[in-house]
Amino acid sequence: MVNTLNHIGLDKKASSSLSDKLNELLANYQLFYMNARGFHWNIKGDKFFELHLKFEELYNDSLLKIDEIAERILTLGFTPLHTYADYSEISKIKAAKNVSSGIEAIKEILKGYEVLLPLERELLEMSGNSDDEGTNALMSDYIREQEKLVWMYSAYLG
């Protein structure tokens, strides 16, 4: 009899699909992280101190999520993408170059969430259908947190 379960007791085929989608999320997070880091470095203007700190929080949080996503892929029995070439090829989030305006940076962050949130919702549904509570809990946490951030960043723009 062929074993259809992976080492943590989940369906191998479903775990493969989840890992592919998690790698897509990982690639997008890597570009989101790099953009936030650039905003942190290059921000100018009267809101410099406020936004400089906010962007630092954002890239530090993204770095944690990148690690969690990669480790989840490994837990499912697959390999996380780990080259810039892979990230830039797969990511729907594109590099935001030379952004120093706070308003423009916030708009770019919101555009990033327009990519991340649908991916996370798709993963939430996929993981729910696969009884993958680990991925499901991770996505649920990300979605709840990011919906609030979208509200806050949108409120900042007026």
Results as ranks from 00 to 15, higher is better:
102 G>T: 06
43 I>W: 00
54 K>A: 15
97 K>G: 02
46 D>R: 13
42 N>Y: 10
56 E>W: 05
135 T>E: 03
70 A>R: 13
123 L>D: 02
124 L>T: 10
128 G>A: 10
83 T>K: 06
17 S>V: 09
81 L>V: 12
37 R>P: 02
26 L>Q: 08
106 I>R: 00
146 Q>R: 14
4 T>P: 01
101 S>Q: 10
18 L>T: 00
116 L>F: 04
62 S>R: 04
32 F>K: 04
33 Y>K: 06
64 L>Y: 12
26 L>H: 04
22 L>F: 07
20 D>W: 07
46 D>M: 13
88 S>G: 05
135 T>K: 00
127 S>K: 00
75 T>D: 05
82 H>G: 15
143 I>V: 11
90 I>N: 07
9 G>C: 08
85 A>K: 15
73 I>F: 02
79 T>M: 13
80 P>I: 08
126 M>A: 13
93 I>E: 00
14 A>W: 05
18 L>K: 01
83 T>I: 09
35 N>V: 02
53 L>H: 12
85 A>H: 13
94 K>H: 11
36 A>R: 04
30 Q>K: 13
139 M>I: 06
60 N>S: 14
127 S>N: 10
65 K>T: 14
37 R>F: 05
107 K>E: 12
52 H>T: 03
46 D>E: 13
108 E>W: 11
24 E>K: 05
70 A>T: 03
42 N>A: 10
117 L>M: 04
135 T>W: 06
7 H>D: 14
88 S>T: 15
13 K>R: 10
30 Q>M: 09
50 E>V: 11
29 Y>S: 06
113 Y>M: 02
132 D>C: 01
92 K>P: 04
112 G>I: 06
81 L>W: 08
59 Y>C: 04
123 L>R: 07
80 P>C: 12
138 L>E: 08
121 R>A: 10
148 K>M: 12
26 L>F: 05
151 W>G: 12
35 N>Y: 00
133 E>Q: 09
116 L>E: 02
72 R>F: 09
72 R>Q: 13
53 L>G: 12
71 E>N: 07
85 A>T: 14
1 M>L: 11
107 K>S: 08
155 A>W: 06
14 A>F: 05
33 Y>H: 15
112 G>H: 01
140 S>M: 10
140 S>F: 08
152 M>G: 02
68 E>H: 13
78 F>G: 05
47 K>H: 13
67 D>R: 14
2 V>A: 12
12 K>D: 09
24 E>W: 05
145 E>V: 10
123 L>V: 08
16 S>H: 09
145 E>G: 09
124 L>G: 02
3 N>C: 11
63 L>M: 14
158 G>I: 01
95 A>E: 15
84 Y>L: 15
127 S>V: 07
86 D>H: 15
149 L>V: 03
105 A>N: 06
